[in-house]
Design a protein around this nucleic acid. Structure first.
Length: 397
RNA sequence: GGAAGUAUUGAGCAAUUGGUUGGCUCGCCUGACUGUAAAUCAGGUUCCGAAAGGACAUGUAGGUUCGAGUCCUACUACUUCCA
């Protein structure tokens, strides 16, 4: 047993380590674009970037067993959601389990979104004030107040390796003055998040890295201003939020370009909520390292498959007698073990296995895509490869 | 052989006393989905037309009526019951 002063010392030390606990090594830079390959190291292992992080909102990547996720899809990190986990199963159970990793039996990295996206997606059920956001639970209508402070505490209890600042994700289109006011509030909230984090120690025996979020809607001057503010916070990694909310792809690219020019090179950059395979490649070219999106999982459940040669709506009649492999490339085992006709049949009769197969395929493809991008960045021919891929993926099969 | 009942779209059903059925659910077809209120949602689904729009429509054939899915007659098919 440590003496009380010893515990205090360890406590202080952990706070010092916190800001720098996560390590990021930049390994390669593409000569013809801003794409980079890197390596993030945390207490739960290595994250090779660029990376796509599957979304597991409520403690599961929907439709995939952890074993399949780990062994077949093999991502270094997945997402959880603060708002959803706070409502269910609720913090006491997560704490009793020893954090989300143990609760869901996932021993690699986890990142939790702060609930900032729910400020956007549940806009009809919440009220934003300077103090925080009052939500009406989508489950039972009960009222809950999220503040920068308690969101940090909740994320300590969930115990993800990377935790996000509490922000407002603005809608699109967004009035300039609203975007500006919202951005400043997100900045003030950031300060409160950081101040409060220093007061709340880690709950488990590993550290957590904190990422602030750039806002500013689709306005370049606001994006620049926000990127500078966020860069100044000197966090271990930085995120770009408020995009992929309905704006045209060109606006998305224009905003990430402005922002990645300002965000520090020696820290990972995370573009939140993006996107289509093409969106991802284009943003890697603009210097983004981390992505997450519900598309591969949600669209899989709705019958859409992403492939290197375009997307497929497996529910379409034309696949009914197509006995060819789901995807000849065979990235995951399901791609060659099952035919398109069989998968279409499973969707027709609404068997859950169809959704599971489609999810494994899509996630396998997304992870393949970012891994392949990484290889080409290291090999130095990313730009050429990317242009070729964008061209061939931009169609419906 | 007799009696009763039923007949509306691929299926199952709606439609106030006779007063605009192309109505609903499912199925089918096609979209959409970007830090997950989503195994969800939207549209289409008689025929012709790309569309605007038009045509024909309540088993078949007639009848009554200003007007019939609804009332009357015959026929056909099906269901149930009695022989």
């Amino acid at each position: 047993m440590l003496p009380v002063t010893g515990i205090y010392f360890v406590f202080k030390l952990s706070l010092l380590i916190e800001i720098r606990s996560m390590k990021f090594d930049l390994l390669a830079q593409d000569p013809q674009s801003k794409a980079r390959a890197g390596k993030i190291t945390t207490d739960h292992g290595v994250i090779e970037t660029p990376i796509f992080m599957p979304v597991g909102t409520v403690g599961t990547v929907k439709g995939v067993h952890q074993r399949e996720l780990k062994e077949e899809i093999n991502p270094d990190i997945i997402l959880g959601n603060t708002y959803h986990l706070y409502l269910r199963p609720q913090l006491p159970i997560l704490e009793k389990a020893g954090g989300l990793h143990k609760f869901m039996n996932w021993d690699r990295n986890i990142l939790t979104d702060s609930g900032g996206y729910q400020v956007y997606s549940l806009s009809g059920r919440r009220k934003i004030k300077e103090e925080g956001v009052k939500f009406k639970s989508h489950i039972d209508g009960s009222t809950h107040l999220f503040t920068p402070e308690n969101v940090m505490e909740i994320q300590r209890s969930i115990g993800a390796d990377i935790i996000m600042a509490f922000d407002e994700c603005t809608p699109y289109p967004c009035d300039y003055n609203y975007a500006k006011r919202s951005m400043h509030m997100t900045h003030r909230w950031l300060k409160r998040c950081m101040t409060h984090l220093e007061k709340v120690p880690f709950k488990y025996d590993y550290s957590q890295a904190f990422f602030p979020i750039v806002q500013g809607s689709t306005y370049k001057d606001l994006r620049r201003q926000s990127a500078e503010y966020i860069a100044n916070a000197d966090a271990p990694g930085n995120a770009i939020g408020g995009l992929s909310v309905g704006e045209p792809a060109e606006e998305l690219y224009a905003m990430t370009e402005v922002v990645t020019e300002i965000l520090p090179e020696d820290k990972p950059r995370y573009l939140m909520g993006v996107g289509t395979p093409i969106n991802i490649l284009e943003n890697i070219a603009l210097g983004v390292d981390m992505f997450d999106c519900v598309m591969p999982t949600r669209n899989a459940r709705n019958g859409m498959l992403f492939t290197a040669h375009g997307s497929i709506n497996i529910k379409n009649r034309k696949w009914a007698d197509d006995l060819s492999a789901i995807d000849e490339m065979g990235i995951t085992w399901v791609d060659t073990e099952y035919s398109k006709a069989y998968l279409k049949h499973l969707f027709s009769v609404n068997e859950m296995l169809g959704k599971q197969i489609a999810t494994i395929h899509n996630l396998g493809f997304y992870l393949w895509l970012t891994r392949e991008a990484r290889k080409h960045i290291i090999a130095g021919d990313f730009a050429v490869w990317k242009n070729q891929m964008v061209k061939q993926m931009d169609k419906r099969l």
